[in-house]
Design a binder for these strands. Sequence first.
RNA 1: GGUCCUGUAGCUCAACCGGAUAGAGCAACUGCCUUCUAAGCAGUAGGUUUCAGGUUCGAGUCCUGACAGGAUCACCA
Length: 596
Amino acid sequence: MNIQESILAGVQLAFQNIFNADVPLDQLALAPTRKEFEGTYTFVVFPFLKISQTTPENTANQIGSYLQENVPEVAGFNVVKGFLNLELNNQIWIGVFQELLSNKNFGQLPPNGQKVMVEYSSPNTNKPLHLGHLRNNFLGYSVSQILKANGYEVIKANLVNDRGIHICKSMVAYQHFGNGETPESSGLKGDHLAGKYYVIFDQEYKKQIAELVASGQSQDDAKKNAPILLEAQEMLRKWEAHDEEVVSLWKLMNEWVYAGFDETYKRMGVDFDKFYYESDTYLLGKDIVEEGLEKGVFFKKENGSVWVDLTAEGLDEKLVLRGDGTSVYITQDMGTADLKYEDFKINKSVYVVGNEQDYHFDVLYKIMRKLGRSYGDGLFHLSYGMVDLPTGKMKSREGTVVDADELMQEMVDTAESHTKELGKIEGFNPEQATELYEMLGLGALKYFLLKVDPKKRMLFNPQESIEFQGNTGPFIQYSHARIASILRKAKQIGVEYNQVDFSKVSKVEDSEAALIFLLNDFEKKIAQAGESYSPSIIAQYLFDLAKEYNRFYADVPIFLENDPALVAFRVALSELTAQTIKKGMSLLGISVPERM
RNA sequence: GGUCCUGUAGCUCAACCGGAUAGAGCAACUGCCUUCUAAGCAGUAGGUUUCAGGUUCGAGUCCUGACAGGAUCACCA
């Protein structure tokens, strides 16, 4: 039984013995005491005044005395208005600490027998990844890690958008203006090469529109009639008809793009267990339309188009199949949802997709539930806000994006110059130095994107946004390196701190108690982050933990202590903190250095 | 116009299913490196939580209505 539980059990008994009332445990809760008051946990008595039939102060005092007498952990208490602040004996933290040490799987909750798929990244194969994709990929990877730590079996999936009119646009432009350029001949990464022609298409398209307008067409007509657009549409038709020439160009350009993506994913530190390709899945879902018609979930209009009526759920009527029998976006998504289930028999499915598709996924999930899918309740859209630039929204086809590869390189370069400025690379060989810059640059970037609630849109200012001080990745990485240094010294001077019984530790400083309190919270935070699919909870926790350790570090000189039991305790406490930081950062996909 | 999301210090963000005097970081200002890594620590200053009502012992949090920003509402993907 942990401390909170035993205190709450005591509170329950207090109500029984003093007020002769049965209060169910789930109505009792402890909150951490605010810093400005004495105490560790606070019990709020306001909700129970009806039971006690007396003033808040009286109620709190009576419960407090009872706890002090009957619950060994409670050393004292004070009452401020209706708040009962419980003061714990610092010694009890030793027991808590021992328990944490004895947990071999600290930070990994036991398997829960559930399978979850996390779909993320899902790039288009006509252009390189940009800042928005970074947020998506980091979120998806981190949520996968967090779910694993919660005991799920996780399948990371990438649904590659490798077909459609936008792909054909790059292809058409390449045919016209490519002159046989290849990644090798140009020295461009494959995805950047494809992206270059996507931009060229748009420029040419706009030029043609202007010409048509000049020759008397309306803006709308010109947009529809521009020859290069017609060409792209024709190419899509040929692709769907398996035209050999088109398909081979498509394959060639996709190969280039995949090679480029591989590099980018590797640097981002993300990976996948399963790839789905829209070129394989875009025809799926028509059988589900049939099924839905039979079940009466869908209905048919006079022209043969099929719809679902979601007005009772507060949404609109939504098309699921065109009158000519061809698919729309959601048709294929229904099919893919089933495919994922058939492949892996998943209980839950998380889609990491931007918030501009909130409505779409709302509709999709309602449909799958109406169809009675077993995984219906496990569908979750992890919706995240766009990343805006000071100059406004990013648009690939206009070239106003922060490119993912460039940004990562910039971050690593900044980390390098920053580290050199601080003179922190003595004793590093070139490989180690490179590894460190990579760790710090990516760590700063990932932490920056993950510490914020995903729902919020965020402004990214390339000049100012990424810091290395304060609430940042490098601050936490630094804290880890600091502890690693302590541990090296402990080893060097021969401090034995494993398998030691710390019950002989004579006194526990406040900063030590606070640190153990936080460490004791780690698994709770993991659970919370898992339930809400929210890496920001972990990020916030790690910042608090690192901050608390640095406070302890400044307050308590570890090796100047004479009592060997105390030294051992402090080293062991440092080590557990380091392990927790490392484990926690790995949940964010961030590595931590031994030295920096 | 309908629906959804967001609005907290100059800036970037917190606030545990309604709890105390709303907390951090950055930027500004003060201290602390002959002692375990100063990418650190301690401190000062900074707020009518967009606004107006309501619910109750108690509201940044819940309800209603405004206001501001964004997204979405295609036989596009």
